[in-house]
Amino acid sequence: MTNQSQISRREALRKTSLLVGSGLAASTVAAIMSGCQAPLDPDWTPSFFSVEHSETLAHIAETILPKTDTPGALDAKVHRYIDELAANVYSKNRQDELMSGLAEFEAQCKSKFSKAFAKLGAEQRKEFLQQLHEESKAMEESTGGALSFFEDMRQLTIAGFCTSEIGATQVLKYDPIPGSYEPCIPYEDVGGVWAY
């Protein structure tokens, strides 16, 4: 972090202390502090991550599974899923791994683009993650399958998306009470993958 940005953050903090008094949500304050962008998920406060980290996670997830003609990771609130697992399920080691992975991710991003990941445009985000994917594949080959931060994020995003209500019911094929078992039907009759 440069001196310049420290000063501007301090400045921002001074300004926002006035706003806190006017009753703005903490997430809004954080969003203002992180660069005056509208918060991605204003009605929710993360349990484990900071609001800033959580927004980064939301951008990572949305880049991995973007909104197209169907909903994407942000619609499915995948960042909430990652926060829930980190807060409630993960061991201390796993939590630490995630935090250091995130810190390294941001550092790499800043050295490449001189910007935080959240402040990149969609194309730059994609470019950066593609690069990490290549590095991750190379690393897996050399280390025999250790999970990189990127691959961790990718798997969490897929699982979080596919087990979310929006992902399962709007993007995958959802059939909560099949009522019968059809053992062998043309694939076109389903035309997608079963949610579970």
Partner: peptide, 13 residues
Amino acid sequence: AIGEELKEAITRP
């Protein structure tokens, strides 16, 4: 890896 191609891939068995 990521993006629209991945999204397409996960919707197929």
